[in-house]
Computed example of a mutant assay.
Amino acid sequence: MEIRYATNPASTKSYDTEGLRKEYLIDNLFVPGELKLTYSHVDRFIAGAAIPTKEPIKLEADKHTMGSDYFLERREIGIINIGPKGFITVDGTEYEINNKECLYVGLGNKEVVFRSADPANPARFYFNSTPAHKNYPTEKIDLDSAESQHLGSITNSNERTIYRFIHLNGTKSCQLVMGMTLLKPGNMWNTMPCHTHNRRSEIYLYFDMPEDGVVFHLMGEPNETRHLVMRNEQAVISPSWSIHSGVGTSNYTFIWAMAGENQEFHDMDAVPMKDLK
């Protein structure tokens, strides 16, 4: 398990490109046949991925880092499949998870196992996990059952649909809020005008990008912005004090997950365009 420590705005101002990428970029998540985990001290997030090929992959706890006997002993998790059909078994119950479908698994479940329907064309499971204090039921969510909201316009190159999977008015959790945003073809901007939410941090995963495509992920304080060049299936840690927006060379999809003091999706501090620097 890779560990990332918390940073602050003052130190981030001095980072060069390599420094920014070392602190905030999560790369090499999707490795065939392996479970990959990154532990962030920002709200105790864990971001990870599993690509089961010939053999299923069990979600294992890193006892040294987590101090627990099994992964969900003190945690909850949201899992989204961004690849072909797969299956997730939770304490003996198997769930079929197709592309862009989500499974929430709550505190106390001891065994979570990932399996692909076709090992030669494996599922690509991405997940976010946060600390939890009580058990909520395991629940599958697809695009049809998710709460959706259409935003933006082609005029501003930001026409998109937000799907909320795990949230206050949908699948219940202790603190994890998770969903997905799909940009329409011909649209490149997300979350602009931008905002911060000082009470919550966030992790983005960008995917459905062409091999030669990039997203310029904007971060930093509104008056001290920085950027990271993101490629397909890379994630980025967004601390609570940072904006989190992006523009791509073509349309793309991203998974967002939040954790912190509350679960109010609309609890955010808007940044006027004139204040960006």
Rank of each mutant, 00 (worst) to 15 (best):
L59H: 10
Y5M: 09
H217D: 08
P52A: 10
T253M: 02
V105I: 14
S250A: 12
R21A: 06
Q234Y: 07
T249I: 12
E261W: 10
P193Q: 13
I255K: 01
I79F: 08
P56E: 07
P131V: 10
E139H: 07
G170H: 09
E73Q: 15
E96M: 07
R160L: 02
F87I: 02
Y163G: 01
S116I: 10
N158Y: 08
G108R: 15
S157T: 08
G92Q: 07
S173D: 14
G170I: 01
I26H: 13
G19M: 08
G248H: 03
D27C: 00
G220P: 05
S157N: 07
T93P: 00
P84Y: 07
P239H: 08
Y136S: 11
P210V: 04
P119C: 14
P9H: 08
G213V: 02
T53Y: 10
S116L: 03
K134Q: 15
M1S: 12
T17F: 14
E264I: 13
S201M: 01
G67E: 07
Y70N: 10
I3K: 15
F165T: 05
G186N: 03
M268Q: 13
A146F: 11
D69N: 15
P131W: 04
N169P: 02
I77H: 11
S145E: 13
F30T: 11
I162T: 09
R164C: 00
Y126R: 02
S240I: 00
D212P: 00
G170F: 09
D43L: 00
E101S: 05
I237C: 05
G179S: 11
T191V: 13
S153A: 14
G86H: 05
I237A: 08
T253V: 06
K140P: 03
Y204V: 00
T38V: 14
N81Y: 06
V105A: 04
I46H: 08
N128A: 09
S148Y: 06
T17W: 09
E261G: 05
P210M: 07
H41E: 15
P32D: 09
I166Y: 09
N135F: 15
N187Y: 06
G170W: 13
G106W: 13
I97P: 01
I80C: 03
I46G: 00
F114G: 05
I51K: 09
Y104N: 01
P32Q: 14
F114V: 03
R199H: 11
L20S: 06
F125E: 03
S250L: 05
I97A: 01
F87P: 00
G186M: 06
T191N: 15
T38C: 15
K110W: 14
H244R: 06
L176C: 11
P185T: 06
P222C: 03
Y126G: 01
A270R: 05
L59M: 11
P119V: 12
H227D: 10
E94R: 05
